[in-house]
Nucleic acid binder design. Structure first.
Lengths: 108, 108
DNA sequence: GCATGAGTTCTACATTGTAGAAACAAGTGG
DNA sequence: CCACTTGTTTCTACAATGTAGAACTCATGC
């Protein structure tokens, strides 16, 4: 997360995947969702590292269900929702008025 | 830029700022645009470092105008446009169906 | 009890993001 | 010509994020 409180690209993806899998958002499942949506396969370590960092910042929380104490179930925290929304807003400002189709790029 | 060819968060911002300032996109001006749009002040080194990395990957090009050979004018390359567009498309897939407003976040 | 599958933790490293100081160029008043 | 100022670029260093895969832990079925 930048000095400005906005999310990094992968952090944002992970957060969204946690939301999308709400209720069964444990590491492996988050990874599967990410792979489904992006079409690439990614190392499980990448997911957990990011999840841990997000938790350290208070953007997600994790708990071990009584029924399956060896698993860690993640859920989005208020701050996580706020952060996603700020990230999207900032980006929209930058994109506003940009039209890729109409662009005459350098011939390289 | 991730292993997948998508842009990092800051890379995307810089690329957009280059587009937005097309014609006078030298480092300082790109920084000013970024500061205008995001409201935070950022170190000039951050901008040049990123611009150099983008150039190394062929997403922008730079040239020194005859009239002002001490400046470096950046412009977006075809690959840069493609990369922006792929980045946006991937993100839209992840966001699709997510409604932050309707979200019942963890009470943390 | 041991193989298996699902999940998690750990370690290590590459790439990005951030910061500020140093160096350079051009113009300006003296 | 020189000191000075302003705008710009380059350099160096470091912190945070992104990436990878092996090791380990549990639960389950056999």
């Amino acid at each position: 997360m930048g000095a400005d409180g906005l999310l990094g690209a992968f952090e944002e993806q992970v957060l969204l995947a946690v939301i999308r899998t709400a209720g069964e958002a444990y590491g492996m499942e988050v990874r599967r969702e990410l792979e489904r949506m992006t079409g690439r396969d990614l190392a499980i370590g990448a997911v957990y590292a990011t999840l841990d960092r997000l938790e350290a910042k208070g953007l997600v929380t994790s708990a071990r269900p009584r029924s399956a104490p060896s698993r860690r179930l993640f859920s989005i925290a208020r701050a996580g929702v706020a952060s996603l929304s700020a990230t999207r807003a900032a980006r929209e400002r930058l994109w506003h008025g940009v039209n890729l189709a109409r662009l005459a790029p350098d011939r390289t």
